[in-house]
Write a protein that binds this DNA or RNA. Structure first.
Length: 439
DNA sequence: TCTGGGGTCCTAGGACCC
DNA sequence: TCTGGGGTCCTAGGACCC
């Protein structure tokens, strides 16, 4: 809507200067870029990073995308293609990516008073609406590249959903040099961009909702934006209503600066080789219980339940399939590795059946709350304070000397379940013995 | 013929995201 | 031989309470 009315324009300017806008900053092909920091010889060469267990492809460099290597494809099925194009292949190295992420987020955070870290490779900033949004975005990119070595893209817009879209445009259209400011578009151009945007390219709309909306005659972002939000709410629920408002430039999603405590903590992994060995399953669950308990203690919380799951390989349809899950309540809220491991093993005993080729196990911690808020049962003795100290000491030792320095004996029962990791790069920044050397 | 209404908590399942 | 792991939010339905 446009108007030549002077007082209307003044009002709108006041609103827009008072309003804030959002920037979404993310690392391009983040895992690949992390690997490239310490391997300048890989500049310009296609790179892929594999999921845990070297199962499938989870990150592709720009060069790899140009080779039409699909996301999430199983690695084994593309091995020939990757070799043929001399693609550099890496197992995922989360110690490295996590550390690079921390450094990147810190640099980006210097560019705004409010930052929401959304995932390992992206964050939102809240910025005052400004004329020079684009140059601000370019400054962020420059700083992150200089100080951390990661190339980024920046999308700026009046809502988070539009910032996501702007970021996507910044990545696709090279002429924008990695920064796209939605606010600089005139209304017709904005509408044209939305018209070109398919539903499943919108943040929060996946395959299922796309199909549902399409059946009701809504086929692109422009049509969704222009549908009455109240009728959307009735037909499709509040999620879609919010998306439509956001596409309209009406900020409708929370901006959370502090990372809230996790409500559930999962540790699970598939095995390099399937096994029906009870000790191997027990060892894997001891490992997962310890990892989950570490995360729980890191956020100063306790859990009331631990769930254990196991399954055979669902892709092997010819083999007998079995999957099960059992949730075990703890005597009282706890974060003690030994207690959690004991409960996990008790749960395993409930659901284990011999004779199946198990391929994956996992634990999940539930009923999580801050440890200082726990009310202990009148009839159960309070936990021994020395145990908390012991856990603290174990955490410090494992942090300083590497994961697994101190562990529960059950973990060592069997190595049968270990994952495959044939292409792992060194932990350049987090292990003294793996620092890069020069010369 | 007629059998309250409103609230909370929990769980399971669906959908989505990176 | 070989197909990831870790999360969130929403909704509906049941149990329970007053």
């Amino acid at each position: 809507m446009r108007s030549g009315n002077a007082s209307y324009e003044t009002t709108m300017n006041q609103i827009s200067t008072a309003a804030s806008s959002y920037a979404l900053v993310d690392g391009n092909s983040f895992y690949c870029s992390c690997e490239r920091i310490f391997r300048p010889d890989l500049q310009g060469r296609p790179i892929v990073v594999l999921s845990n267990n070297d199962g499938c492809i989870v990150a592709r460099s720009r060069e790899a995308k140009q080779l039409n290597i699909p996301m999430a494809a199983p690695y084994y099925s593309l091995r020939g293609l990757l070799r043929h194009h001399h693609v550099a292949v890496f197992s995922s190295n989360y110690a490295l990516y996590g550390d690079i992420s921390r450094r990147m987020m810190q640099v980006i955070g210097e560019f705004a008073s409010e930052q929401q870290i959304y995932s390992i490779d992206e964050c939102f900033l809240r910025l005052p609406s400004r004329q020079d949004a684009r140059s601000h975005g370019l400054a962020i990119r420059r700083a992150v590249y200089q100080r951390v070595g990661i190339p980024t893209s920046v999308g700026i817009a009046p809502s988070k959903t539009l910032a996501k879209l702007a970021n996507h445009i910044a990545k696709q259209q090279r002429e924008f040099r990695g920064v796209f400011d939605w606010g600089s578009l005139d209304p017709n151009s904005a509408t044209a961009w939305l018209q070109q945007t398919p539903l499943n390219a919108i943040w929060g709309i996946g395959r299922r909702l796309s199909e549902q909306l399409t059946r009701h005659g809504i086929q692109n972002a422009r049509q969704l934006r222009d549908t009455d939000p109240n009728s959307l709410r009735r037909q499709f629920g509040v999620m879609i209503e919010r998306v439509a408002r956001e596409l309209n430039g009406e900020s409708s999603l929370d901006f959370e600066q502090t990372t809230p405590d996790k409500q559930q903590i999962i540790s699970s992994r598939s095995f390099a080789h399937p096994t029906d060995n009870y000790n191997a399953l027990a060892a894997s669950l001891a490992y997962h219980s310890a990892r989950a308990a570490e995360k729980l203690r890191a956020q100063h919380c306790v859990a009331t339940m631990i769930g254990v799951s196991l399954r055979t390989n669902p892709n092997r349809l010819a083999e007998p399939q079995y999957r099960n899950y059992h949730c075990q309540a703890l005597a009282q809220p706890d974060a003690d590795t030994l207690i959690l491991t004991g409960a996990a093993l008790a749960a395993l005993a409930q659901i284990y059946l011999p004779g199946y080729a198990y391929q994956k196990t996992g634990v999940i911690l539930l009923g999580i709350s801050p440890s200082e808020r726990v009310q202990y049962d009148l009839f159960t003795p309070p936990p021994d304070p020395r145990r908390a100290k012991l856990m603290h000491t174990i955490d410090r030792l494992n942090q300083r000397h590497g994961q697994g320095t101190v562990r529960v004996a059950t973990e060592a029962l069997s190595q049968d379940w270990r994952m495959r990791q044939d292409h792992c790069s060194p932990c350049y920044t987090t292990r003294w013995d793996q620092l890069p050397s020069v010369g």
